[in-house]
Design a protein around this nucleic acid. Structure first.
Lengths: 339, 339
DNA sequence: TGGCGCGTTTAGATCGATCTAAGTGTCAAA
DNA sequence: TTTGACACTTAGATCGATCTAAACGCGCCA
């Protein structure tokens, strides 16, 4: 039982290999009569196009390497979904890698992706990725799109989100509710999204003449956040509001606060980032800055398609807006001294 | 700027193409002296192995097509993670597809995967997948592993979970708490996991001499579940406990019940399935039957590796155990007639 | 000296497509 | 009748690796 090749198809249809090749590539150069004959032969023989062989000669592989730091984080899963949906429509296959935020794993995968002859890479760089990583790709002439995070000091196509509006709206809301003692809960992973969000926070605060009460770094899991609550709330100066780097941390804190009998929105205000589906699940609902990872993923994929078509086009940055979504976890300040 | 080929490497090292090929394939046939020379040449020229060309001759592509119904469901994202982690270690590249539970999309992807020359498929079949889908793959000699769901009437390697223990423990817990009027919330998607879980529920119920109070089908989203609560609770005979097909539904109901002022665990008992991270987030915590999607994914990938090595081995089924995790949402029955 | 075995190396065919450049046949214009 | 344009078709080289089968150098034994 041997594989059916284009030559078999050609013979069966009574044409040459070259003509059959033109048919499978939808070339306008063939007459409709021969096209039909070849297509009939293809169907009859159950021919399967061999992209591997085609790629070798034509050097286009119709595959893209996609590197995501952590698939189990729903936020990234949705990002990936957005990327996949666009590439799928464009006829590209997604070769996936989970970097676990490890630059070493990331390097390994890129090596493998090159062996597979991918047409390019879409990467959300692992925390701590070196500049060299991006520079190498550019040196090899490998199209590379960065998304959500960008390695500092590098210039490539980039798809991310504009944290400015959402963060300002969030801080503004807290300010209007009378909050002045606002703490920031960051994650322990260092990457550009982290840095940028924190910077936007400081900026929004100082625009209101405020200083952050503190910035605390926690491992980005529900559990770690939940556990950290007592320590956070029993500081010398107690915060009246907490703003978190993401919803994973915020939801963990939400639960931790409830454990202590401290009611989010009444006793302390809490705001997350990402507006994941679960924000609506807890009581009171978690106020959060909405970002649209699916759209960011789509943009990243579109930037990739653009770069494939115009390899020498100038680098582009696309950002999706963010906006604050108010829910019960954010409310007027309440001075504990009164109680 | 041309691509560096094995021939370039060979010339640079002063050996033949064939010898260089033996080196890159780690053949024991080459002397260590020539091996070193070739490896030096590879490093100096920055040679990148061309898997595409290799595959064509050797017909092993080191790629696997993985089809998942819905990436944005964290449960599947974790499954995918498990699959990826094993395949990555084994040197396989994952070509990913999101079927959105559409058999048509699924077919399209398989076509593309064949063109890419994947060595096999790992599939969680879309709801409504026809028998033909699996039979075709077998006919083509394409190794195929089914995971989590299996197309009825087909026999392949399969990695899933044993729903029996968890379901019996859950029903048992409800029974001990005095619940007799137990409703089941199913999803609107029909596939084997759905059917099997419902069957296990009926089985566990009748083992205790009970009949399900009702079986209600809902779209598997937080929102749909939340909205359905009033209707579910205002039936002629009010359920004292609800068991759900998955945690998405259960968490939606949890919130919907709270909206009505009906407290899970006190006024009505609620049990989910999957034990996702969010079960710990809501108050009271959501009791749930734990399943281990990461392990199921690992098993699926291992079954695949086994089949590649032994194409004619008998079909194997691997199941991960499930177990009930008790939390606050499940408590003693409370008769509303008393209130 | 010739023949044999052993470890290593190699030339040349091959995988299945695409590309190039040349070759059909047909028809209208010169 | 020749010419050229046009629409289509094709033989053969080619991509970059692997495979096969043969050859090489060397030592050993008859």
């Amino acid at each position: 039982m041997k594989r059916v090749t284009l030559l078999d198809v050609a013979r069966h249809a009574g044409v040459s290999r070259a003509t059959a090749s033109l048919v499978v590539r939808n070339s306008p150069l063939v007459s409709s009569a021969t096209r039909e004959a070849v297509e009939k032969a293809i169907a009859e023989l159950g021919y399967v196009y061999n992209l591997g062989a085609a790629r070798m000669r034509a050097s286009r592989s119709q595959t893209v390497g996609v590197i995501i730091p952590n698939l189990t984080n729903p936020f990234f899963a949705v990002l990936l979904s957005g990327i996949e949906s666009v590439l799928e429509k464009a006829g590209f296959a997604v070769i996936l890698a989970n970097s676990y935020d490890s630059p070493v794993k990331q390097d390994m995968f890129v090596g493998r992706a090159r062996e597979h002859g991918v047409d390019g890479l879409i990467v959300c760089p692992a925390a701590g990725t070196e500049k060299r990583f991006i520079e190498d790709a550019l040196k090899w002439g490998m199209p590379i799109i960065q998304t959500l995070r960008a390695v500092p000091g590098t210039v490539t196509d980039y798809s991310g989100m504009d944290q400015h509006d959402g963060m300002h709206e969030a801080v503004n809301c807290l300010y209007e509710f009378g909050h002045r003692k606002i703490g920031y809960i960051a994650s322990t992973l260092y990457h550009s999204a982290h840095t940028e969000r924190l910077a936007k926070f400081r900026e929004a605060m100082s625009a209101r003449g405020l200083e952050p009460l503190f910035v605390r770094h926690l491992e980005s899991t529900h559990q770690a956040a939940r556990m950290a609550v007592p320590e956070i709330m029993n500081q010398r100066i107690r915060p009246t509001a907490l703003l978190c780097h993401n919803d994973v941390l915020a939801l963990g804190l939400h639960r931790g606060l409830c454990d202590l009998g401290v009611m989010p929105g009444r006793d302390v205000s809490l705001i997350g980032f990402d507006n994941v589906a679960e924000t609506d699940l807890v009581i009171p609902g978690l106020a959060s800055v909405a970002t649209e990872p699916f759209k960011v993923g789509e943009s990243a994929a579109n930037l990739f398609l653009r770069r494939i078509q115009q390899p020498d086009a100038e680098f582009l940055t696309k950002v999706e807006p963010t906006y604050f979504v108010q829910r019960g976890s954010c409310g007027p300040v309440r001075d504990f001294a009164d109680a």
